[in-house]
Amino acid sequence: MNFNIKIKAKRLWTILACTIIGVIIASCSFKVDKVDQPYTAKVGDVIDITVDFTVVTNENPSQTGPMIFAMLMPVGWKGAENTTIEYTSTKGDGKMKHIPDSEVAAGGSGFNPGGLNWPANLKRKFGIGNNFIEDLEWVVFRSEDVTYGNNETTKGKLFIKLKVGADGNDANVRLAYVITSGRDGLVVNEFGTYYNDFYTDCLSVTGGTTGDLIDFCSPQLGIINPPKSLDNDFTTIVFDSNAATNPLQGADAVYFKGTAVTEDGQTITVDEISDKTKLTETLPGSGKFQKVIWPRKFFNISKTQKLVSLSYYITNASKSVQVGYNNTAEPFKFKFKCN
C-alpha cells in the first residue's frame, strides 16, 4: 500500500531541521511521496520497506545536520538489532545508525518534559499508534550529516530491512513511522511542526513457533499487559466491555474468575466476589476496567512453585454472566513467558 503525505512548513525565523537525510535549514518543505511495505510475512522473514521522499529548501545560509527516523514495532522483534536503513539521494548516499537509549531527545523542556530519551519521548507524543496492546517500542535512527543550500530540491529513498517476529510469535501489528529533526525534535510552534508521523495498515506475521498470536490491531475484550511477563512481574488484567458485543456491556462492576497452572501441573482457582477480584473502571462510564496483580501473591503459590499459564473469565457480581475469549464459552488464556 502507498501512503501519500505532504507537509508544508512556514518560513521559520529560527533554524528548522529539514527532516530528510539530516538537513537543518531556516525554511524548507518535505514530502513523503510513497511508502511501500508488505502486509503479510512469515516469522523470521526480513521484509523490505521503501520510503520515497522529496525535500525543498528555500533559505540561506546553508546548514548541516542529521535526520531522526523512528519506527514503531513489537518489543519482541528487537528492532535495534534487526533493522538496517540505507538511503540514496541526489545529495548523496548513506546509512542510518541506531540511537542508544542513553541519548536525551532534542526538543528542550517544552517538547521533551523530563529530559526523556528518544523512544520514551516518541511514546509520550505518539503512544502506540493505531494499535491496542502496549508491548510496542519506538526504535530510533539517525542519518549522517548532509549540507543543503537555498532553492534546492532533493529526491531520495530510504531502504529499510526489518526482520519480523524475532520472539517467535505470530502477530498482527500496525507499524508506524516518525521523521523529525535531530536538532529540534518534536517541536510545534507558531512557525510550524517539526515532525511528521504516519501510519500503515495491519501487517500479519504468521508461522510462529510459540502457538501464540498477539493481535495488536484489533480491540480486545480481555488482555493482560504486558503480554509477555512472568509470574513474578506485576501484570494488568484489562477488560474492555465495549470492544465487542457481550452481555457485560453496561455493567458497573466486573470481576475476575480464573485458574492458574503451575510448572508441576497443580491448578489453583480464584473464584470469589471480593475486592481481590474486582476490576476498577478506568473512567466512569467508559466500560474499560483493569486490575493490577502480582500473580504469585494473587494465586498464593509457594516460593518453590512457578506459574506457567492462566485461563480466566470476567463475570458480573452475581456470577450469572461470564464473558470469555471473543465472547465465547472459551476462557481468555495467557502464558507466562518473557519472550
Score class of each variant (00 low, 15 high):
Tyr148Asn: 08
Phe298Ile: 03
Gly79Glu: 03
Asn327Gly: 03
Ile237Gln: 10
Cys18Asp: 09
Leu307Gln: 02
Gln220Gly: 09
Asn225Trp: 06
Asp167Cys: 02
Tyr255Phe: 13
Cys18Gln: 07
Gly185His: 01
Ala26Glu: 12
Leu116Lys: 10
Gly129His: 01
Pro113Lys: 09
Tyr325Asp: 12
Val187Gln: 13
Glu137Thr: 11
Thr14Cys: 11
Phe30Arg: 00
Val55Ser: 09
Val104Tyr: 11
Gly211Gln: 07
Leu279Gln: 00
Ser204Arg: 13
Asn189Ser: 02
Lys78Phe: 11
Lys335Gln: 12
Gly185Asn: 06
Lys157Ile: 05
Ala9His: 15
Ala253Asp: 11
Leu248Tyr: 03
Asn246Asp: 09
Pro226Phe: 05
Gly185Val: 07
Gly265Cys: 04
Asn82His: 12
Val187Asp: 00
Thr235Met: 14
Thr19Asn: 12
Tyr325Arg: 08
Ala17Tyr: 12
Pro113His: 00
Ser286Lys: 06
Ala9Cys: 14
Leu158Thr: 07
Ser229Cys: 12
Ser62Glu: 10
Val55Phe: 02
Pro219Trp: 11
Val46Leu: 00
Ile24Tyr: 07
Asn60Tyr: 13
Ser102Leu: 08
Asn300Pro: 07
Glu134Pro: 04
Lys303His: 14
Met96Asn: 03
Leu230Glu: 15
Thr154Arg: 02
Ile47Pro: 04
Phe132Lys: 09
Gly108Trp: 08
Tyr39Leu: 13
Ile214Thr: 08
Asp48Trp: 09
Asn189Gly: 02
Cys18Ala: 13
Trp294Gln: 15
Phe216Thr: 02
Lys157Pro: 04
Gly76Val: 00
Lys337Cys: 10
Gly168Gln: 05
Gly65Arg: 04
Leu136Glu: 00
Val261Tyr: 05
Lys157Met: 04
Trp138Gln: 03
Gln266Val: 15
Ile268Val: 08
Leu116Phe: 02
Tyr199Lys: 14
Ser309Gln: 02
Lys319Trp: 06
